[in-house]
Structure formats: C-alpha cells, structure tokens
Amino acid sequence: MYAYIVRRLLMLVPVLFGVSIFIFVIMRIVPGDVAMTILGTDATPESLKQLREDFGLNLPIYQQYFEWMAGVLTGDFGESMRTGKEVLPDILTRFKLTFELTLISAVLSWIIAIPLGIIAAIKRNTKTDFGVRLISLLGVSVPNFALATVLILILALFFSYSPPVGYVGFFEDPATNLQIMILPSIVLGTAMAGAVMRMTRSSILEILRQDFIRTIRAKGARERVVIFQHALRNAMIPILTIIGMQIGTLLGGTVIIEQIFSLPGLGQLVLTAITQRDFTVVQGAVLFIAFVFVLINLLVDLLYSYLDPRITYK
C-alpha cells in the first residue's frame, strides 16, 4: 500500500514534466506577448525589444524553459511579469478560495443528490422518480453562468441583493465568508448534483438487481438495511468515480463563476494572466492545477480500495 502511494507519487514527476513543457510551448505559440500587453499597440519596436530582453524573452526557448524549471525545482516559481509579485504565494492564496468553493459546492451537491438519487431508485417509474430525474436533467443542462445570472437578478430584484465584493477567509470571519461563498457554491453545486443524482439512481438500481441483494432479503433484512448497508455501499464505487472527476474539473473550472461573482480565486488569476500574457503566472498556475488534479486522482483510487476489498494496490 505505502509502496503503491510512493510509486504513484513518483509517477507525478513525468506527468508534471510533460505538462510544464506543454504549457510553456503553448504560451509561446499564441500570438502576442507580455511586452505588447504592457506597452500597448502604439509602443515603439525599440521599447518592445528592450522589455523583452528584460524578461529574457529574447533567449532561445529551451534556455528560457531551463531557467524557469531550475527555479520551479527549488520552489521558486518566479515573479509575475505584470505585477512583480511572487507567483507561488499568490497561487496558494487564491487556491484557498477555489478549494473552499469546490468543497462547499461538492458537499452541498452530495447532501442533495445522494438522498434524492436513492429515493428515485426506490420509487422508480413513479411521479417522484420522474420529478427527481427532471430536476437532475435541469441541473446538468442549465449552464452555470445562466443560473448564476438568473439567481443574482432575482435576488437583486426582490431582496436588493448585490454580490459581495472581495473575499474574506473562512478562518478570519466565517459568517462573512459563508455569505460570500454560498451563492456561487449553490450555482456550482447544482450542476454537480444533477450528475451525482443520476449516477446514484442508476447504480442503486443496478445493484438492487444483483443476486446478493436477493440473498440479503432472504435473510430477513429490513429494506433500510438492504438499501443503506448493502445497495448504497456498493453503489458508492461508481458514485465516487463521478465525484472525483467533478472535483478535478471544478478545481480548474471555476473560472466563469469566479468572474461572475468577482471572487479572487485561482480561475480568475489564470484568466487575467492569460489575457495579459503573463507567462510566469499562467505556467505556474497550470502546473499547480495539474499537480492537484493528479493528487485528487490518487486520493480517489485510495478511497476505492478502502471501499472495495477486491481492489488492492501493491
């Protein structure tokens, strides 16, 4: 088991190496660079050249890469080309927000989706089931930004709500923090909930058809025991897969929501950095997101083996 974890962590190295080369090259292929965005369209060629030299952008690309990598390997992700701020601390601060947003949305969606999915499965093909399936269909198909806009509009119209500006950490001021986070979390959670609900319903139905459920009923188990101790536990394995995938995408995909709710999260950082061609920030953030993504995958795999004795890692 520990050997397995170590091996998986070692496998991180080539993956992150690949990601780093990929993002580095992409950033240099897209037209425009940071010098142009800083100096604007009416900059003289001389001043552009000067600025590029200051950033080392005139060097051969492999040399730029090695210099950047040398820094990254010692924990120095460099400085933002626009603000001069150190990249890594900025990423970590903003990641706290994105992570919290993801976590609250996820938990919110499970609280709603798993019970509803179970109810739909038990009451399959009844009005309740169709109702739940309709909700989940809406959840997955209504785009986040649309839901967010409608929610903000409604709240603004009827409760004269305006989205709070700025961000306060949970440990600084929990009440204000939750006030800021709740709306974006609901928006993100709805989409997740739709998918989790569907998966819960279909996997429970699938499990309920299996032979061992008949055995458990034949033993004299109450329906509660059949559903919660046996069907749900077995269904958790496919549900976990979809949850893992969603958390992964959310961590890198809260861009739009952070934009709408003006939350200074990781998504917003990357978006701004891309439009400004702030190479060091984009590279650092993408590398970091890839790292978190791989870690979450590892965590999900470890959870599998915790849930299912048939899965063992050596």
Binding site: D211, F212, P309
Partner: peptide, 20 residues
C-alpha cells in the same frame, strides 16, 4: 419468516454474497 423459519440458498455462489 425469512432467514429464520424459511431460508434459501441459490444457484450462483459466486454472486450471492455481498462483495464488500
């Protein structure tokens, strides 16, 4: 009654027990 007064065994021993 089930499992207590009347109990049952099935054909497929491979799938009749909860794997977890």
């Amino acid at each position: 009654i089930r499992g207590n007064e009347i109990s049952m065994i099935f054909q497929e021993p491979m799938t009749a027990l909860d794997p977890l």
